[in-house]
Simulated assay, not measured.
Amino acid sequence: MPQQFTQVNYYQLCDELTIMDTDFAMVIKQHGYPPFWSRPNTFESLVHIILEQQVSLASALSALNKLRERVGEITPARVLVLTDAEMRECYCSRQKTAYIRYLAEAILGGQINLSDFEQMEDDDIRSRLTALKGIGNWTVDVYLMFALHHTDVLPIGDLAIVNAIKQLKNLQKDTPKEDLLIIADTWKPYRTVASMLLWHFYLQTRKPKSKT
């Protein structure tokens, strides 16, 4: 079973990364520790991640909240009774509506069992989930990180992560991903926690500066 991080050891792992890479020490010194981003291992959490594909976090959360208003608890059975029009009213595109339905049907049909994933290796989980239309590596990465708390996941398909690495390391904008992956290898076996630090760095450095 893959190593996991918890609220108990989260700061300790951040501190270990500052020893492995002093740039992370700078991040924590300037911006503090990253939040403990976490979601329950539920159908709703996977729906939330699907909604976050290629849109702003605020837009995805608006759609999720609309779904909650419509059905209460977001479960596979409750989502599947919604019509296309009702899904559109919840800000779900036609494409994402289809992806959410594929996932719901896979869970109800027994093809996917989220509780089983808690004892499985990353690669096995990835192969199960990416077999479903609409779930790619980025969605699986975020699920492994936020819902299962696996310690060594790097969502290299995430633009914020890519840009944060380039900014932190003073790299050219056209630096290839292969070079970024070589850098990230030095963060093993804590690439998830490194990613949390990178997201934190990215968000903090883009906050508007307060007027004095």
Rank of each mutant, 00 (worst) to 15 (best):
A98C: 12
T130P: 01
P40T: 14
P40R: 13
F117K: 02
L82C: 06
Q119F: 07
E118D: 05
E105D: 09
L129S: 05
L80Y: 09
E73Y: 05
M120N: 02
V71Q: 07
L51W: 04
I107P: 03
T75G: 02
L82K: 07
G110Q: 13
Y102Q: 11
F117C: 05
I100P: 02
F146I: 14
R94H: 11
N113F: 02
L103P: 01
I125N: 01
L129V: 13
A147C: 15
I107V: 06
T97H: 00
D141S: 14
G110V: 05
F117H: 00
L129F: 01
T139G: 06
T42Q: 11
Q54V: 07
L82H: 11
A63R: 05
Q95Y: 06
L80S: 08
C92I: 13
R68M: 03
V142G: 03
V81L: 05
L67F: 08
E73I: 09
L80N: 15
M120F: 04
S93M: 11
S45P: 11
L80Q: 07
S115K: 01
Q54K: 15
L132P: 08
L103Q: 00
R78P: 01
T42C: 09
P40Q: 15
Q53C: 00
L61K: 13
C90G: 07
A106F: 02
E52P: 01
H149V: 03
R88C: 04
L67H: 06
L46K: 12
N113H: 02
S115N: 04
D116I: 03
L114Y: 01
I74F: 11
N113W: 02
L67N: 10
L82M: 14
A77K: 10
N137E: 10
T130M: 11
K133Y: 06
I28L: 08
F146R: 04
Y143A: 00
C92N: 14
F117E: 01
L103I: 00
I112C: 05
G110N: 11
T75N: 05
A147E: 02
L103E: 01
A131L: 04
W138K: 10
S93V: 14
L132E: 10
S115E: 07
Q111T: 13
L80M: 14
E121D: 06
L144A: 00
Q54H: 10
Y91W: 11
V55G: 00
N137T: 06
L61H: 09
L132M: 13
A25D: 02
G136K: 14
E52C: 10
L148T: 10
M145A: 03
